[in-house]
Structures are given as C-alpha cells and as structure tokens.
Simulated assay, not measured.
Amino acid sequence: MAVSVDEQSVKRLAYIRMVYEQGVAQAKQPMPMGASSLLSLHDAVEMFLVLASDALNIPGDQRTNFLDYWKKLKVVDLSHALGMRRLNDARNGLKHAGAMPSVETVAQALTDTFAFFDDNVPRVFGVALWSVDVSYVIPQQAVREWTQKASASFEDGKGGAALALLRLALQCILEDQQWPHGTVLARLSRRSMSRPGKLALLFQRAFGESRNHRVGDVARGVEELEKTVAGLREALQWTVLGGNLHHYARFQFLTPDAGFYWSRDESRMEEYLASEWVTQRNPTREEFEFCRQFVVTTALRQADVSAHVALPSWEEDRRSSRGPEA
C-alpha cells in the first residue's frame, strides 16, 4: 500500500537520508567517536517512522515508543523489526546508560539500518530512499540546482562531470558570501582575495628593468608568500563555517579544479566537462556521496552563518527608506 510522495515528503526523505549518511560517515571514525553513529542512525529511522505515520494518516502521540511503530504501521507490514530492536538497544545503552558499543555493534547497526531503509521506504512510498536527492535540503537555489545536476550526471554514468559540478556548487557557496562591509568576515571572503601572483607580477613590472639579479628571487618569494596568505585565509573561511579542513582536503583531491570563471560561460563549461581532466575520474558511489554531502553541509553552515551576520536593524531601515534603487 504505497502512498504518493508529495513535495514535503520528498524534502523530509532527503533530510532523513542526509542524517543516515551522516551516521555512515560517523561510523568510519575511530572509536569512541564512531559510537555517535548509533544516535544518527536511530534518529534517521525514527524520523522515517514518523513520516510514514503522517503519510498513512495514522495518529501518534508522545507516548509512542520506537518499537511501537511496527504495530501501528501494520498496513504496510514493516520489516526488519529484529535489526531495529538491536539498534534501539545499542542506542539506548549508549545514550542512557553510557555503555560504549563495540566496533562489531556499530558495523551491525549499519547493516541493519541499510536493510531497513532499503526494504521499507519502497513499501511506504513506492520509491527507494537512495533515489531521493539530498540536495532538496540546500537553501541556496543556484547551489541546489548545480548539486541536482551533479546527481543526475552521476546516475547517468558521468562520474567525472558529477564531481566537477559539485566543485562548481561549492564555488557558488563561497562566492555568495556577502558579509557586512568592514567586518573580519568581509576581509576573509573570497571576493576580497586577489589571485595569488598578482603582487609578485606588479613587483616584477616595477623592478624588472633593474640589473639586480636578485629581483627575480625576491619576486618568487613574494609569490610564495601570497600563496601562503591565500591558503591561510581559505583555512580561516572554513573555520568560520565550522567545517573540517581534512574533509575539505579530500573534497579538493577528489574533484577537479573548475577554474574561477568557467561557470559563467556555458560553452566553456560543456567543453570542460567533456575534457580528459574531468572524464578520467571514475568515482565510486561512496566518493561521490562524500563530496555531495560535503556540499550540502557547507551550504547549510553558510546559510546559518549568514543568518547570524545580518545588517543591524537601523541599517536595514536606512536602506529601506532609500527605496529600491538604494
């Protein structure tokens, strides 16, 4: 008895998948950090059970326990009750009794949760959870569209192009940061950063006619300094966004550098996506999903930071009084 999937349900399924993939990523961390995966996996399953109840118009209340849903949702005959009981016991042991799970317990939880979603999401909605694009949760429209194109490219067998499109989506996030003028965030933004090498080039132009043979050495030193400062500013950006630099390093390693302007020229973009530099990449699903999840997480963090770094109320009022041309 599968129900139709409306837009709101798709968004909730996308969020559920995002939480599930977060749990999968946490499980790969060394213990005891990997233990937190049990909390995310349990949350993802419970949110799906609530969504299924809503979609099937089955009332619930705060007294409904996790395992009660298998009785409440008899109309769809939910499976994998035993596996979810194991997950529930392990999660409760960790959260309420401080019982640290073993590596084997976490691995079993991953297997059980995957099997639960793989079997039960189609039972309720007639579609696989893995077909739901997590990009639905991205608030920035341009970033969401590029990420959706990346997902479509990957499913079409164009893994290299998918990675390049995700690099473009991340570039859109970083370029869209419009911090209030004069703040430290504005000085750290990509918009305020000149390309590395510009100062060195000016130095060479100014002193290139000099007979001093050390001018070239100094220019190269200036260029290296520019690169170092640019790297530090980029690292500080990720610190502001609350990101992990080692995750960003992996993302950079997996995805091809899209260049700074190529996204603004459609013909150049198509040419780039078909280039050997892009097509030679053949990512696994895990690698692609890691990069996509990185974009989604960064987009959400950027939206959260932007909401907290808004213009002061009096500045908003002043701009409003100027009218639309202000």
Rank of each mutant, 00 (worst) to 15 (best):
L82R: 15
W262C: 12
E276R: 14
H80F: 10
P32H: 02
R318P: 08
F48W: 02
L245E: 12
S131W: 01
L165H: 09
A25L: 07
A186P: 05
S321I: 15
L87E: 02
D176I: 01
A142R: 13
E289Q: 09
N244D: 14
Q178N: 12
H42W: 07
R17G: 04
M1V: 12
S313V: 13
V143N: 06
A27R: 01
R268T: 14
A169P: 04
V143I: 05
V222F: 00
S210K: 01
L174F: 02
R319M: 09
M84H: 06
A115L: 09
L241G: 01
T111K: 15
R12G: 07
V134P: 10
L165A: 05
E289S: 07
F290L: 04
R281D: 03
R190N: 11
L166A: 05
K72C: 03
Q171W: 02
Q26N: 12
H213S: 14
A169G: 03
L273D: 00
Y20W: 08
A109D: 02
N212D: 09
Q237P: 05
L174H: 07
F203N: 03
I173P: 02
S135P: 05
L87Y: 01
A303G: 07
R268H: 11
E271P: 09
K28Y: 08
E104C: 08
R167K: 10
H213P: 13
G242R: 00
P180R: 02
L300Q: 04
R85T: 13
V76T: 02
V132P: 01
Y248R: 15
L232C: 14
I58E: 06
K74L: 12
K149W: 14
R190P: 06
Y248Q: 15
S192Q: 15
L67S: 07
I138C: 00
F116T: 00
A55S: 07
V295Q: 06
S135A: 15
V295C: 04
H42Q: 07
F154W: 02
S275A: 05
Q237F: 07
A107Q: 03
E315F: 10
S40G: 05
S275N: 02
H247W: 12
T183R: 03
G197F: 03
T111A: 14
M18N: 14
E224D: 13
E104T: 10
F114A: 11
